[in-house]
Nucleic acid binder design. Sequence first.
DNA 1: GTATGTGAAGCACTTCACAGCT
DNA 2: AGCTGTGAAGTGCTTCACATAC
Lengths: 211, 211
Amino acid sequence: MAASQDVPEVVIERLPQYLRALTSLLSNGVEVISSQQLGEQLQVTPAQIRKDLSYFGRFGKQGRGYSIRHLVDRLRHILALDQTWNVAVVGVGRLGRAIIGYPGFQSEGFRIVCAFDSDPRLVGQLAGGLMIHHMSHFKEVIEREQVRIAIVAVPATHAQGVIDAVVEAGIKVVLNYAPTPTHAPRGVHVRAVDPVLALQSMTYYLRNARD
Amino acid sequence: MAASQDVPEVVIERLPQYLRALTSLLSNGVEVISSQQLGEQLQVTPAQIRKDLSYFGRFGKQGRGYSIRHLVDRLRHILALDQTWNVAVVGVGRLGRAIIGYPGFQSEGFRIVCAFDSDPRLVGQLAGGLMIHHMSHFKEVIEREQVRIAIVAVPATHAQGVIDAVVEAGIKVVLNYAPTPTHAPRGVHVRAVDPVLALQSMTYYLRNARD
DNA sequence: GTATGTGAAGCACTTCACAGCT
DNA sequence: AGCTGTGAAGTGCTTCACATAC
């Protein structure tokens, strides 16, 4: 058991994976699971699962395993997923529209409630049913809409400026789709979605590769 | 300097980031850079950059720094990015079509040359200018088209089956957009693009958060 | 008998710090 | 004088292994 800041970030990143697997098991009618079994499914060692969970409490029963239903509840609470989060999308080009239209966020409790762009020709139009606001109204709109998460889908050249602006407006969690390294102050969490980087690192293994 | 298998995967994952930053610098007319300066730009320690590069050779000049032009060439070679890679997309639903239409792959040397789906109603139609083939012809088509990379954009329920099939056909590099954990044999590299997982881990920090 | 929770050990990546080159 | 390349030291995550609980 530990205070928030003690938990390694790698651990936090694994919890949603555990949660997803457990939710799926539950919907298949499984009620109890051991760290061994869950580990096989996720390709993780049982010790790692037990250690990860131990940062937050003692959720298992020795000799039996974990009650999936109970563990799901606890993980959802730990990750603050036992509530709906409102999300703003910045950039409504091709990518931004795809993000707004993607049903996978909504179904997991992330509700995209407003969209922004800096192009005045787009402002006032609709994108996926959402009114497009100008970036100059960002702070005002996200406060009204109670948004605490921003998704950035602008060209690489604009990404840092947009991140600066959303941080200035008080946003602490950013999902960045722009293919560029970015910087944010301490206490702001930015994660990148960058399929090109992922491909570019894997081609390394095709280099000589008969492995 | 070391053999391929000795280089930690984390190092390989950083190289494309270095490459991207260096390419950008070069196009801005910068010719030489120190590990210190590059580190500042990428939020990485200079020692880490030097150590990472040292796995592959000695590319710098003591007292001066690195010739960006030279380093870009070497990194592109190390990562096997000094060639074009043909890519297959499996799944031409909404997401698959967005991937096919995304210009960011093409511009980095990843050419999407064929598309597959298991829905017979889609087979024979076009998606983003590409003929949609049935999965039953996967091996035949990728061999003809010289494809060694697959992008999987099918529903979670089908992802493992599709990955099994593409691996069976000889694919060693997979970019998986399906929101589900997957397994592949040793020697096959699968990376996941999973924005929902990224958001779900960041909400942890919004839990108590005035940090 | 079976599986958790956890200190301790192990391992791997990161950072230091300095010799060596320009 | 400045900056790389790199063994050595440091750090932090992972795995072990066993006492403990059911």
